[in-house]
Design a protein around this nucleic acid. Structure first.
Lengths: 333, 333
DNA sequence: AATACTTCTGTAAGTACTTACATAATGGTC
DNA sequence: GACCATTATGTAAGTACTTACAGAAGTATT
């Protein structure tokens, strides 16, 4: 069952069938409907490989993420997949884990699969050491690379970003305005967005004349119980804090559990702000105030940008979206 | 840059290069290393389309799920993707939503992409009306279909299942043994596994001589707040219950919030059991007792089965795995 | 050293499409 | 109705691989 069968049955050449397939305008309406009818009748679907061979493209975008089970990335994957399909593109997914080696390997793999572009979901793809990002810059010469929530300078590299710095700056400022003076900052990783979040926090403190205490800036695995235990430990050590600003809701949930365990009252005695406004935010009592990083908008932007690139439009290499602060019950404001 | 460039530079025919590419034994060791060296030197990667055209396969499995942002499915996707890659297969992901129309459309789409098999993740693919599953049975004639947590009878269709009925039977029995007599059952959907979970609950009640009350069996959106509000409403109506068995942790979290809102004490006065043992289970205080449906094992089984099918091994069309009951703080036992 | 057998390599014919170029058909104009 | 422009269609040459078959080279046997 191939293009020849269709052409034979329709009494036209394979070139005409191919033109119908590709929506060429140089086909008479009569022939077009005839060919479409025959295709339908035979249940014909063009062979993707032959098509890819001829066209050099396969209407497929490679999506890479470090871990699809992370709620933030899971949502990103969902919106990306849906959005791309709306433009007639398929997605091929790669979960790379966090090792640079495997990232490079899967990068190469997707590249060799002839995807039309690569989307890197999440901030974990950009390494601290610039040389480690060279492979991305190299690949971008041959196909567009889109970063969702990450930034890298380079030809043919585009970024859709959330303004994380302003978000944490704003959140920390609100905490200070509501009376908090000892704000703990909890983060999971030193990614691009992680660094921005941290500096937003630091700037807010500076701006209000508060000291930046190193022991208030704590790294913690992305894990409810780890966060709780970390805070318990600080508490036991006698470190005083009256608020937690977390780089992820998971950690903020841990902070709620810490408060429950120690009997501190939220938000009177202890305030909490999470990040990502995920489903975790409404699991706790009281419910989390959280920064919404607007994954959906980020993904939409990334896809719009990509389609612009495909159409040869002039497109900004970097789009930044403002975060939302969703007020719930763990803050006084 | 193609196979001809390699053959020219290595001074052999393209057939020989192709043989090296495909690991044919009929190549002398000397020629093989020579060709591999040349490939490496030129940075050659074979064109997937041409390869697919010739071979008719592309080492890619289609994964379908209703919604990749659901934590259960997100984990499944992760394990499937990782596992398949271990066998040298890529995954192409489709999120179908829940409408039958789109499911069928994407099914057809993946089929036309010439994937080597289809994995349907989650129980949402099997419709109540048998005729609505015909498209799956049809497709299975041409390529293997694997169901993760779903069951459908048919040639070339394989299922990896969790024994949901025994799981809820066991959970409900434990609740009864610990003194609960009015166990509410909360569920989200009437899927294959949903029906099994329900009947496990019902059988346990029957087995202990308890009445099965229709008003104790409640459908609810998969959503923390919806579950809480539903329970609040029943409470206000004066419906008495001393335990909740939920078909998903999300609903169980809602039950915890209901208890907080009404001041009922867990587990003395009110017990809760969730399902899936997801990250939500440790978010609440007290932490959820939950049934672990063992996604990872399910995915591993599915992949092993699939590889068996590819190798022509005789493989069971249905594998069932026992669930684990993870005891935490919302039950007396 | 001739024969038989195995192992290795090359030729050429698929595989199913796209598209440049050539040619045929159609429609409009005078 | 002849001429030209436009549109529609067909031919044939890519696109980059796989693999059956034929034949060459190498090895073992007598």
């Amino acid at each position: 069952m191939n293009i020849y069968d269709v052409s034979r049955k329709a009494g036209v050449s394979i070139a005409t069938v191919s033109r119908v397939l590709n929506g060429s305008p140089n086909v008479s309406e009569r022939t077009r409907t005839l060919v479409l009818e025959v295709m339908d009748e035979l249940g014909y679907t063009p062979n993707v490989f032959a098509r890819g061979l001829g066209l050099g493209t396969i209407q497929t975008i490679g999506i890479m993420c470090s871990d699809s089970s992370d709620p933030y990335l899971a949502h990103a994957i969902y919106y990306l997949e849906q959005g791309l399909r709306g433009y007639g593109y398929d997605s091929i997914l790669c979960c790379t884990g966090s090792s640079l080696k495997t990232k490079q390997k899967y990068f190469e793999l997707l590249h060799s699969k002839k995807v039309d572009a690569l989307i890197l979901a999440g901030s974990k793809f950009i390494e601290m050491n610039p040389a480690d990002n060279d492979y991305i810059i190299q690949t971008a010469r041959e196909l567009p690379v889109l970063l969702v929530n990450g930034y890298l300078e380079g030809e043919n590299i585009y970024s859709a970003l959330c303004d994380d710095r302003s978000a944490t700056h704003n959140a920390a400022s609100k905490l200070i305005a509501s009376g908090c003076r000892n704000i703990l900052y909890l983060y999971t990783s030193q990614s691009y967005s992680g660094r921005n979040k941290l500096s937003g926090y630091q700037d807010a403190l500076k701006g209000h004349g508060l000291p930046i205490r190193e022991d208030y800036i704590c790294q913690c695995p992305k894990n409810v119980l780890a966060a709780r235990d970390l805070l318990m430990q600080l508490h036991r050590k006698g470190v005083f804090f009256d608020a937690v600003l977390a780089s992820d809701d998971t950690l903020a949930v841990g902070a709620v559990k810490y408060a429950h365990a120690t009997g501190r009252s939220i938000p009177d005695d202890f305030s909490i702000i999470g990040y990502n406004n995920s489903a975790y935010a409404v699991c706790t009592d009281p419910e989390l105030t959280s920064i919404d990083s607007r994954v959906e908008a980020l993904c939409t932007t990334a896809i719009t940008t990509l389609m612009g690139v495909f159409n040869g439009a002039s497109v900004p290499s970097r789009t930044t979206i403002a975060a939302d602060l969703i007020k719930r019950e763990t803050t006084k404001f």
